[in-house]
Design a protein around this nucleic acid. Sequence first.
DNA 1: CGTCGAGTTGATTGTTTTCAACTTTGGTGG
DNA 2: CCACCAAAGTTGAAAACAATCAACTCGACG
Lengths: 218, 218
Amino acid sequence: MQTQPSALAQALDSSVARSLDMDDGLRVIGFTKSFSKDQQIFCEGSSTDFIYRIVSGAVRSVRLLADGRRQVADFYLPGDVFGVELDVERLATAEAISETVVVVARRSNLAVDPDQSHRLWRHASRELRRCRDHVLTLGRRSASERLANFLIGLAKRLERGDAFDLPMTRQDIADYLGLTIETVSRTMTQLQGQGLIELDGCRHIRLRRPAALADLCE
Amino acid sequence: MQTQPSALAQALDSSVARSLDMDDGLRVIGFTKSFSKDQQIFCEGSSTDFIYRIVSGAVRSVRLLADGRRQVADFYLPGDVFGVELDVERLATAEAISETVVVVARRSNLAVDPDQSHRLWRHASRELRRCRDHVLTLGRRSASERLANFLIGLAKRLERGDAFDLPMTRQDIADYLGLTIETVSRTMTQLQGQGLIELDGCRHIRLRRPAALADLCE
DNA sequence: CGTCGAGTTGATTGTTTTCAACTTTGGTGG
DNA sequence: CCACCAAAGTTGAAAACAATCAACTCGACG
């Protein structure tokens, strides 16, 4: 199964097609493509025919209200697949948070294999689960619960143990958690004051008492 | 394709198996089953092998935090299919809001037909879309924006024009919108005061200026 | 007609936002 | 290498919004 040369595929700034065996069994032949900080990967309303897997860097999925209020729907980290949707049009915009490399594949090339198709749906299903957890957080948790929950989830996904670098800015975190940047900042300080986390610069974090943090999330 | 008699199918309190041609093309042979107000249809952690379609009544999907805070993930209305998930375990509990009749079908009976399977996923996809809209609402909208958005969406789904009965209590609305019952009540009164809606009793609503309501949602 | 659950309204509190000033960080060029 | 600058982050004070606590009203049903 070869990727057809396409306008978009040819426009990709990567040169070599690479075979990629995804963790979850998704076998994809795609192209690597690099994005610089804040560069758009796809935008709301665009076609959903391409799916992506992050090689390095990080991505945010963003939606805007008419007056500019911003909601970050999700973050994607190295190894994550994103952009899998059955709808024809994208509902959100995807942007690179930092210098980011992704593998791009044409969904229609995968979907012909029912087995691959099933794996694609597994991703959509994971997405739905994350989205539902997000609803619970935004609907019913306080600022400190939101942040604690966020940090624990991030630590787990980054697989770096209890010390890691935040890939995103305070503004991104705020827009993900439905808070303001000031509230995120204050809550970070507060968690640090309680000895639950340790900040070294504003990006590097260590979870000092992960269990106590987890208690905050209920 | 016949439904196998199963422990659960036999336990259903309905007698006749009925063939149902769903609006969206889902062809299902299932059983009808009735639920009384507040009765559980399925609970968190249970198997996802059955899917449901509402014949009459209404259903809420609910998640709870450890301390009892409640989040309504979604409402389902007559004609809606719910309970379609790829995960093995259910993440939320489904409860009848009022006297409710549903058709129950075994997902594994449908999924063998790739065409039916595709239609099932269409539902999951719709669910994801609704969930993402919910995130945007809970993350970034004020109480009056949340309520206006909710009422407009409900009016559209109920297909009764601008006047309809709310199938759910204030508490359910509050738990769906991430507010308290008092805030929902006050916001209703406020929207009425602005001439945007008209309340006749606490259940019957008429949207007097749908366009102005829609403006509130941005 | 009385009771109970649901809903509304009022007063007050508390959390988060807003506005503003200040500090830190990271990158760039002298 | 250091100084400077802009962007990002923090902190403080005040305001706004929604939550909480409490009393009251409405409506359905016996």
